[in-house]
């Protein structure tokens, strides 16, 4: 690990001031950043510990405002999350292990980096995300875990978070503060597709700090859940996951939001499928047709063609499950 200085931020302005040095990273629970630093993939000169900033989870405009320092466990455990946003509780509980969830912060989860094995192999593999312009060994390599949507010739990595998939389906807003002041960005605009700059995971400016996540209220009668498909029963990253919110009245879909994990460089909001379903009957046939429409543009690689039918089936099954609850 490259040497670094360590400072604890007392409040948000203090954190932003401390992070004005160029090679500074904000530190949450460390479950991803410390690992990346040990592998020398991240080499910050300074860490600013933001775990002492707001971890409050409170009512906010009919929804919730979540301090970015809230631990993943605390968010999944929160009564209103379990009652009103089960998709979020279930997504968090399906990620990592209990020990990691106890440490990891909400802000850190938002900014965790891909687990692409080539990204994680600085000694032996080329990676445009790690070393821009170097090339990508995943494209012609073992790419069973990689992206089928929105990838580029420069990068086929997937975003690893379960929580972010739920937040994408919930239309979450991310509160950010930086040297230029405060702003709010939609979760779906926080992460990027790789294009020719896979080294950039997010749209945050240098020095910007995520301070909170806001969840808007859900439409009346909406149900939500999260379904994750992985290689083993627990403690594994998603092959495909689906976060979905569905509201049905008299058999007609009045509101639907679907986000996919494990398929793209960012949580993938399935807007094609949503458009195909809104105002239509909530039937398995319509769910499947919408899922197929969403995956029409998929570009599977050598080893991950299975993700296309898996995503279609998982979307269909998840919406079906929500209809069952609604009946």
């Amino acid at each position: 690990m490259t040497p670094f200085t360590y400072a604890r931020a007392s409040d948000v302005p203090d954190a932003v001031r401390l992070a004005s040095l160029e090679a500074t990273k904000y530190l949450g629970g460390g479950t991803n950043l410390v690992d990346l630093m040990r592998e020398t993939i991240e080499r910050p000169e300074a860490l600013v510990d933001v775990t002492g900033l707001s971890a409050a989870i409170e009512d906010h405009q009919g929804g919730l405002l979540i301090g970015a320092a809230a631990r993943n466990t605390a968010l999944a455990e929160h009564r209103m999350v379990r009652e009103t946003y089960p998709v979020l509780a279930r997504a968090i509980l399906s990620g990592a292990s209990a020990q990691v969830r106890n440490m990891a912060t909400v802000g850190g989860n938002l900014l965790q980096r891909t687990r692409c094995a080539y990204f994680y192999d600085p000694e032996g593999s080329r990676c445009n995300k790690r070393s821009p312009g170097e090339g990508c060994d995943a494209v012609g390599g073992f790419n069973r875990m990689h992206a089928i949507l929105g990838a580029s010739s420069a990068c086929i990595a997937t975003h690893p978070s379960d929580m972010c998939v739920a937040l994408a389906a919930l239309d979450a807003l991310i509160h950010v503060q930086g040297p230029a002041g405060e702003r709010t960005v939609a979760l779906t605009d926080l992460h990027r597709l790789p294009a020719d700059r896979p080294d950039l995971d997010s749209t945050l400016e240098p020095g910007e700090l995520i301070t909170a996540v806001a969840l808007p209220s859900l439409p009346t009668g909406a149900h939500s859940t999260y379904r994750k498909v992985r290689d083993r029963a627990s403690y594994a990253f998603a092959l495909v996951s689906v976060g979905a919110v569905l509201a049905v009245e008299d058999g007609i879909i009045t509101d639907v939001r679907i986000a996919l994990g494990g398929v793209a460089h960012k949580p993938w909001r399935a807007s094609t499928a949503e458009a195909a379903l809104r105002g239509r009957q909530a039937t398995p046939e319509n769910f499947r047709a919408a899922a197929e429409a969403e995956l029409l543009d998929a570009q599977p690689l050598r080893d991950n063609g299975f993700k296309v039918p898996l995503a279609i089936r998982t979307i269909t099954a998840t919406l079906g499950e929500l209809t069952g609850e609604n009946a």
Binding site: G30, V100, M103
Partner: peptide, 9 residues
């Protein structure tokens, strides 16, 4: 509370 000490500074 249980945590993993290897990734804890």
């Amino acid at each position: 509370e249980r945590i993993i000490s290897c990734l804890a500074l």
